[in-house]
Nucleic acid binder design. Structure first.
Lengths: 406, 406
DNA sequence: CCGACTTTGTTCTTTGTCAGAACATTCGTG
DNA sequence: CACGAATGTTCTGACAAAGAACAAAGTCGG
């Protein structure tokens, strides 16, 4: 039950049913590809004539294409329909604290080529660098295929409407508009988004075909900070100030270690990668000491994880404590949003077999109901490049999204 | 950007634009009443002919009615349209721990008559009692007006689809189906809903005409427990298990007092009315002692509030501590959902002038951004009967909700 | 090999709504 | 009292949805 906003509604016209049904059809093909017109007609409960009509338009638009006919037990052999993905390209860019990743993918997120370079914080240097690299990538691998846009993923708050980066502390960016100069430099539409939200979008829109895709879930990223992309009713929750999902700064204790946010005992000071590495090194965690200590120590979270996997007791213990606090944090999410699942991303997921029992036990101990205790917690490995997949989703998803009416 | 759920979509038909535009029209009348056809045509950017056609259908349905013509500076005098509310009745029922309230209202929530009786937990006795009382109310005040349904508000989790009360600890109900027997007894549709959600629905659907109605907010109820109704994008968030919004059991400290939920240091053990009264009495709070102590002490939360308003230091202090913790709890809501406003309901709001500065200060100290710190916190007085208004909204809102497509 | 049957896909006709023009109504004004 | 201006109604054309009829392309059994 949704309330109509009488200040910004979209009135239906004579072509509205067409728009809606085209979009439903497109999504049915996406999720059941390959699929025949007759099967689509059955699923949509419309006549085959209508399907012919609608598919013709989508094929003309270049959204679908016809494949071969396939065998059928009897009767005329159906002609299969596919979503056009392989010759529609997307540039996904993931800007992180130390490195920036650029990936050329097709429309469904398959990687074609990837590059990395040291992150450049200065916009005046970054944009030309991106410009040459993107042009090279497209010249080398683009062939005759068209690039449909750029998805830029940033570790910080992004304004959904303008695409401005409101605040990205790791890059020192505040109210930075990278969208406009990049669009001018490359002549392609640029979509900018916060990393956890982009990861959530990838999960929702680029799931493996056939897999049940959740429409109510939370994607929690564990890296230098803790972020979350919240999806409710198949829609991302941004909140009034684009700052929804800051579960990293929910306090677990009133008197815990100080946090950069000004609070104390935030989830982040117990479970961020910085905190885990500090714990491994046997040092008290504080944001200041962590920044100073870690680079000099030469120990990274990946190192801690691999030592834990190798069985080193100190590393295992450090991760166990992280898991316990993470479980406490996730149970806050379960209590407040009751999602159908929680996806956890970040380097520590490589050691998921060690973490999971502890996380689950912690959640079970704190859950209000049995069903809440059983909320699936799903790891996503860093090797799947979730942020870059998110970049692709930023460009491709809008073309599959539900039209907005009323 | 919403994802289409390909397992449960609603296909558009030839009548879809009509359905959508009828609903937009109805809502425009609701919010701008009285309003003429010509004005509606301008607001919807359609021809006046279309408006005549659509309003004729709504008038035939009994959703609108024509009022008098009014003066205009020049030209033909416009004929005003109104939403039919005064002769469409709703029975709102609020079942609470000690008392049950029944209110007969019109469609927009105006009270016509009200009754109270001691709550009966036994369903076999409760349903006949409600049956006779509702029949009497309708016979006395109903006149020739039609009652459109019953909105039943319950302190506990309710399954959105079946209307079953899954768990209402204050009433000792577990998987209780009150909807079916009540519908059979009275021959009217019955809508059952959890109290904080019902309050949120009332806020969204029965706001004063002209007031800006929020579509992203959280309604927090402070009573024997802490509950919350979460509204995102104009839709209530129920979560997988109808247990979203349990902010009352978010822990503020890891080692605080035990809570009934099995956790420790939950928001509820610091800010519920039981906790506040215990604090006033100078007793350590625990759920068991509170239940035992409070009835014998004879002190209620209303008493503590009125003593605080009279300036009694102990009462003022008890409420200040509650306010401090409540501020901490609300800042969790702000961080995780970033709503455009938070509405606080419950007896303690009578002392809002004392509470507000403390709550605001606590939120400001914990907020991540200036805008988050400025999130409006709005009190709703118990004297406005928010739960009963919620009961009315349960019946009337569905008739104004946006149709679901794609 | 051929006709009966089955299923897919296309084309054509009917139906009903949207959209906009034309028209009727009702007021103020010179 | 004609005229302009605004509101409200009616009429007509255009066009998409719905569904029937038809064409296409296969299997199967005799």
């Amino acid at each position: 039950m949704r309330k109509i906003n009488t200040r910004s509604f979209v009135r239906a016209t004579r072509w509205t049913p067409r728009e809606i049904n085209l979009q439903i059809l497109l999504n049915l093909v996406r999720e059941h590809e390959p699929i025949s017109r007759a099967e689509l007609a059955r699923r949509m409960k419309i006549g085959r004539g209508m399907v012919t009509y609608l598919t013709a338009e989508l094929i003309a638009q270049g959204a679908l294409y016809e494949g071969d006919t396939v065998d059928s037990p009897r009767g005329r052999r159906p002609q299969m329909l596919y979503v056009r993905t392989h010759d529609r390209l997307v540039i996904a860019i993931d800007i992180r604290f130390s490195s920036t990743y650029i990936m050329l993918t097709d429309f469904s997120g398959n990687s074609i080529a990837m590059e990395t370079f040291d992150t450049i914080e200065d916009l005046n240097a970054l944009v030309p660098e991106l410009q040459t690299r993107v042009r090279n990538l497209l010249a080398l691998h683009g062939a005759s295929r068209k690039c449909e846009g750029i998805g830029l993923v940033v570790p910080g708050m992004v304004d959904a409407v303008s695409g401005q980066v409101l605040n990205a502390p790791q890059l020192g960016w505040r109210n930075v508009d990278i969208k406009t100069p990049l669009e001018e430099a490359l002549g392609l539409p640029v979509h900018v988004e916060n990393a956890p939200i982009a990861c959530a979008l990838a999960k929702m829109w680029l799931g493996r075909p056939g897999a049940t895709v959740p429409t109510d879930f939370v994607y929690v990223t564990v890296s230098d900070g803790i972020g979350a992309g919240v999806v409710v009713n198949g829609q991302v929750v941004r909140g009034q100030t684009n700052s929804a999902g800051e579960f990293g700064h929910v306090p677990l204790t009133a008197d815990g270690p100080d946090c950069l946010c000004g609070g104390h005992g935030c989830l982040e000071v117990y479970t961020s990668n910085l905190a885990t590495v500090c714990r491994y090194l046997g040092k008290e965690f504080s944001p200041a000491t962590a920044r100073a200590l870690l680079p000099s120590s030469g120990v990274t979270i990946a190192e801690v994880v691999s030592r834990a996997l190798a069985g080193e007791a100190r590393a295992v213990d450090a991760l166990q404590v992280t898991a316990r606090h993470l479980g406490a944090g996730l149970s806050v999410i379960i209590k407040t949003l009751s999602p159908t699942q929680i996806v956890v991303g970040g380097e520590i997921t490589e050691a998921w077999e060690q973490l999971e029992p502890t996380i689950r036990a912690e959640i079970a101990a704190r859950a209000l109901t049995d069903m809440a205790a059983a909320t699936p917690i799903v790891p996503e490995l860093a090797s799947a490049y979730p942020r870059l997949r998110g970049g692709t989703a930023l460009v491709s998803a809008p073309l599959f999204a539900a039209p907005k009416f009323a």
